[in-house]
Amino acid sequence: MSNVPVTTWSLEQNSPADLLPAAAPEGDAVRIVRAEVPSPEFSRFLYASVGGDIRWTDRLGWSHARWREYLERPGVETWVAYEHGTPAGYVELDAMGDGVVEIAYFGLLPAFRGRGIGGHLLSYGTARAWDLAVRWPELPPTKRVWLHTCSWDGEFARANYERRGFTLFKTEVEPRPAATTPGPWPGAFAE
């Protein structure tokens, strides 16, 4: 298998005032709810369904126990956007210590992209990263929120982050194996 260059951009906010919220979609069809009960099955569904066409593969091999261990850590939260009761996408927060929160994963299922949900979900999730210590009093107040995106992610991903007030602090280019996208289940994107 050959390698291809992949660019990874790391972006950050250093104050809640950096957040530039997107408008919520019109009407009441979209709701954002925290998945408060750790559920490896649901989290794996979101991960595979959102990332299936953009090469998210890091967690596909995680065991049920590994998912549970991760999800039960203080400061790990999953916020899910629903449109008319159907999961549309999610944002996953991970408290890294010392007041730093990573937006570990963010994205929409393919059918929900390009409809104004992503900017709203990212705005909401970023605001929840800034007030994470309110829900987790054992954690220090958030002083930095960061994330990374890469050239394999959706073509508008980085622009969405920058429109929400994230600023670039690091760029890396590294070779990665050229791989086909796994899809949310075997054969889902078969031609």
Rank of each mutant, 00 (worst) to 15 (best):
P140R: 14
Q13I: 04
T7D: 02
V37S: 11
R31N: 08
Q13S: 05
A188Y: 06
R34V: 10
E12L: 12
R34L: 10
L121A: 08
L139R: 13
A133E: 09
Q13V: 00
R68D: 14
Y161H: 07
G85D: 05
R128Q: 14
A133D: 09
N14Y: 01
V50G: 01
G107Q: 10
D131S: 10
M1H: 07
P182L: 04
C150N: 09
D153T: 08
L168H: 03
V173Y: 00
L121G: 06
E36H: 11
P137Y: 04
A159P: 01
E92K: 12
A95I: 08
Y90C: 07
E162P: 00
V76Y: 03
P38W: 13
F45L: 15
P25F: 05
L19C: 00
R34F: 07
E191V: 09
S2E: 13
E72Q: 15
V145H: 01
A133R: 06
A104Y: 11
V76R: 05
Y161I: 07
W130N: 00
T181F: 06
L20A: 10
S123V: 01
G154W: 08
E72N: 11
F156I: 14
I54C: 09
A104V: 06
A29N: 12
P16F: 00
L46Q: 15
E41G: 13
H64G: 12
V100Y: 14
H148V: 02
G89I: 10
E162C: 06
G61W: 06
G97M: 09
S151R: 02
P110C: 12
R163N: 08
R135N: 04
V134Y: 02
T86M: 10
H148F: 14
A65F: 10
V91W: 04
S49D: 12
D58Y: 12
T149V: 09
P16H: 00
D94A: 13
